[in-house]
Write a protein that binds this DNA or RNA. Sequence first.
DNA 1: GGGTGGATGTGGACACCGTACACATCGATG
DNA 2: CATCGATGTGTACGGTGTCCACATCCACCC
Lengths: 221, 221
Amino acid sequence: MIAQTRTYHHGDLRRALIDQGLLLARTGGPAAVTLREVTRAAGVSPNAAYRHFSDREDLVHAVAADAQRAFGRAISARVDATPAGLPAAEASIERLRRVGLAYIDFARAERGWFELAFATQDAEPSAEIVTLDDEVVAPFQLLLDTLDGMVAAGALAPERRPYAEWACWSSVHGFADIAVHGPVQWQPAHVIDALATAVVEAAIVGVRGTAELPASASPVV
Amino acid sequence: MIAQTRTYHHGDLRRALIDQGLLLARTGGPAAVTLREVTRAAGVSPNAAYRHFSDREDLVHAVAADAQRAFGRAISARVDATPAGLPAAEASIERLRRVGLAYIDFARAERGWFELAFATQDAEPSAEIVTLDDEVVAPFQLLLDTLDGMVAAGALAPERRPYAEWACWSSVHGFADIAVHGPVQWQPAHVIDALATAVVEAAIVGVRGTAELPASASPVV
DNA sequence: GGGTGGATGTGGACACCGTACACATCGATG
DNA sequence: CATCGATGTGTACGGTGTCCACATCCACCC
């Protein structure tokens, strides 16, 4: 008996369905997570899913939440790996660069999950201000913190801080979408790498208002 | 008799199906353009569509081509309406600004067509270099020309020209996508306007490398 | 400790979709 | 005027999501 938290008939069927959904979405995107397919893979009748999800959309949302978590983890890992020892201002810029490149790389590496994570922004206008889904909040909050860190480190003028998150997110998300669905997808990987770098650098310049390094930049001689 | 170019049985059924597809896609996006629905609206049997399109995807492509044309027209119109009398450098920047804002506004105003126009980048890696679909070429070529015009007018340093189109397109497309599918969609229109403005300005700065006006800027007093 | 009730899974049915096949129709062309 | 290819139809099959009535089985309670 493997049974541990084995509940009624199947034993955490909800979890099994979501896991199967992740598997399907990984290669096939949102359209691939089909009610009949996940239940079939779980060895259960199609209607069993209705005991755990109100409809297909509900299932897709649950799968998307997991994909969004993986997305957030990928970005955090890349940011956390920022080398130490850089001047504060430069380090804060490097972190922003890493947020952007990690975003793009995740989209390229896990196209299906990326599509799923973003094709799921609906629901209702819940609160007053922007109010992101709790799952999205992790990556987005990371971006906000990174930008605030740039201000604190003197790498971003306070008066340029407002809206900066939207400019950054737009650039990076736009390139990710173009790299995944647009004409760029047919280019060889190294070309996409170069384009991604250029786009992220432009986003950084666009937010900071200048291409120059922060004043505190002390090149190690 | 309305008949004019009335051909065999129906009279330019292909055109009728595409038109109905545009109607459906306008409110429902790509998913709404369904083989059975377009034929039903045309008063024809579902299979009649197969005399004009190889399959549903083929129909969607044809509808998308029309949507992309409308997209291109909207951008061109906005750029062509650039007021005369500005210094050349400023005028060239203004044209870039208009490309971006028109792109975003079209996405917001015609969400379904926008989705359709972009959800149709597949086919094969046809030529060597980027090779956009002929339909996409119009807006994209417009962007290229606009950037070249900025170089010519001294509003963009030649060494910053490479890859500039990708940075611009990414910013603007990314915001369009976020404004249409992301959390921004729930904000009131004036907030989205403000964000769009900020994003486009940041894109311009990011490409030019500075927030300062070109040297030739002569404020009309 | 044996029944009962609610949570869970099943089976069958329906409407919709894309699409393949054989067939009907019609118009241009000989 | 006959024919033949282009165009549209009818029927059918497999796929999907979803509703309904029913079967099962665990947990709890007397």
